[in-house]
């Protein structure tokens, strides 16, 4: 039983790897589906804005409220804006945004491509002279790769505003003083790595979701399974990438 699970895991990993290789091969071949790419950017970005914004605001608030008593104990409450902003921008916002998008975008892509597969829409595209991989997969993966960093930047901004509200629940700190304290410690080298991580998160979520949807089997039951496993595998992959990023950060002291 364990060997079957291991075999399935290795088979899936190899499948996703080959799917990613095919993505890069198709990416530079004409013709480029620019209109569909823009449509997907809108779908991926626009539909996630509200969820990412609300999540980021709550995260900024909660982290600040939770950190405040501990920092008061050590008499370091003046450091609260800097500490909270660094932890939000470097780690929490990229990961939580990626997890939110894995749920929202991953399930949507997995289910959409899955249902297109079982209702022969993908075959129909091929018959119509369209490369379905280029039209459906390349555009969606590119859109997820480019939109996730933008969502992370938006999330960073909103979470910092959440932190400002959090600080003001028990204290009275002006917005000017708060931003001064935040940007005294937070600089470009904190933002850039989170954006780079966002590119990897977006690419991974896009590739995994498209792979799961594109290889859907067994009718409508398979569509549900594809949507579900798109989310589960994407979330797992996000944590793995984050772990690798942390190790790389330790080695190079950059991330």
């Amino acid at each position: 039983m364990k060997s079957i699970a291991l075999k399935h895991f290795l088979y899936e990993t190899a499948g996703i790897y080959l799917f990613a290789v095919r993505f890069f091969k198709e990416l530079f071949k004409p013709r480029f589906e620019f209109n569909e790419f823009l449509k997907q950017c809108y779908t991926v970005g626009n539909t996630s804005i509200t969820l990412v914004s609300v999540t980021a605001l709550i995260m900024g608030l909660v982290i600040t409220i939770q950190s405040q008593p501990a920092m008061e104990t050590f008499g370091t409450e003046s450091w609260l804006p800097s500490v909270v902003s660094i932890s939000l921008v470097r780690e929490l916002v990229p990961v939580i945004t990626a997890l939110t998008c894995a749920g929202k975008i991953g399930s949507s892509i997995g289910a959409e491509l899955g249902s297109m597969k079982v209702t022969e829409q993908i075959d129909s595209m091929e018959v119509s002279g369209t490369n379905p991989f280029k039209y459906l997969v390349v555009t969606r993966v590119l859109a997820a790769t480019l939109m996730l960093p933008l969502l992370i930047i938006l999330g960073d901004t909103i979470s910092l505003y959440g932190a400002y509200i959090g600080v003001n629940i028990n204290q009275n700190v002006s917005f000017h003083l708060f931003t001064n304290q935040v940007f005294a410690k937070l600089d470009f080298s904190d933002v850039l790595p989170s954006v780079i991580k966002g590119l990897f998160f977006g690419f991974t979520i896009g590739i995994i979701s498209c792979y799961k949807g594109y290889h859907t089997k067994n009718g409508t039951e398979g569509v549900g399974k594809s949507a579900n496993s798109s989310v589960v595998v994407s979330i797992f992959a996000v944590f793995m990438i984050d772990l690798i990023a942390a190790q790389v950060a330790n080695i190079f002291h950059i991330l």
């Binding site: 209702t119 022969e120 829409q121 595209m125 018959v127 119509s128 002279g129």
Partner: peptide
């Protein structure tokens, strides 16, 4: 060569006009 699929295979996200335009724009 035209192919009529058993499940019709109409693109759900597109209107009927866009469905019919799709093969035209390709070829």
């Amino acid at each position: 060569v035209g192919f009529l699929f058993q499940s019709n295979a109409l693109y759900d996200s597109m209107t009927i006009r866009e469905n019919l335009e799709f093969p035209l724009r390709r070829h």
